[in-house]
Amino acid sequence: MLELTDIHKSYLGRPLLDGISFSVAAGETVCLLGASGSGKSTLLRIIAGLEISEGGSVLWDGHDLARVPVHLRDFGLVFQDYALFPHLNVAENVAFGLKMRGLPQAKINSIVTESLARVNLGAFASRRVTDLSGGEQQRVALARALAPGPRLLMFDEPLGALDRSLREHLLEELRQTLQASDVPAIYVTHDQEEAFAIADRVLLLHDGCIVRAGMPAEVWREPGSVWAARFLGLGNILEGKSLGNGRVDTKAGVLETACSHDHITGEPLALLIRPGAAASGKGANQLRGRVTDVVFRSPVYRVTLADGLAFDLPTAPQMGTEISLRLPASAVECLA
């Protein structure tokens, strides 16, 4: 089991990682999700031993890895642009880690064949890696990292350079591969869809700290902060003041919320209203607004009102018209 305690690292004099602690259990896939520059790649490199942290420790089964050099850690790392060895062919790339472990050639050959078959590249063994497409290179990188059977796998934005449809396809492959093995994995990305699709547990990294951790559905349901809700693109954020009894005064009027927290009257709050929560018609939590934009997003219409709030509606209203929407109190969430 991997355990990180209170990792610190600064970059150009400013704190980049400011006390990171988490652990990864056997067979678990943990996803580090954060904006670019949030230090998530640096964290991976610290775990791999490629960089030295300024504080805190990396433990494996309780043993501190501080004095264990990179090549003895037995952690596989899939780099962002794959870092395939250009002077070696596909099979030789995959065999590299096995050779370093001094396995007999016959054993190496069989593992290479097996690894390449697992990523559907069986026919590519003797190809030059420079002749491969981006997706194929990514698969070779995965096979190369998997082949020596590392005790931990790490991925640094492994699908970042690929186009959308290929990314979805490879993500699915990767998910199945990780599920089939019980190797724990850490997956770093800035793409929340990728993170939610592959992770058993998501860690949201912001300002050098883990601001939210949990299963994808939990994080999606309760982002826990304005920043997290915005970063995850969950919906409209409205700022307002508590009027007590779950009622909040906002620029869109006074809204009833299903908030279970205790708020002092007059306390500033942020509300999250998910686009799918509204329905046309009148009722409690009435919202009125002029339609400024309508975009078809199958199977609904994303309708933007003059005050900037956006909702998904089953039918498209006329541009420029004034419409009324109602929000059930349960759809108005309070962000701490």
Partner: peptide
Amino acid sequence: LDPRLEQAARTLGAD
């Protein structure tokens, strides 16, 4: 030379 090539080799067990 891409420094990550050497790093990749190191993570694969090369001293």
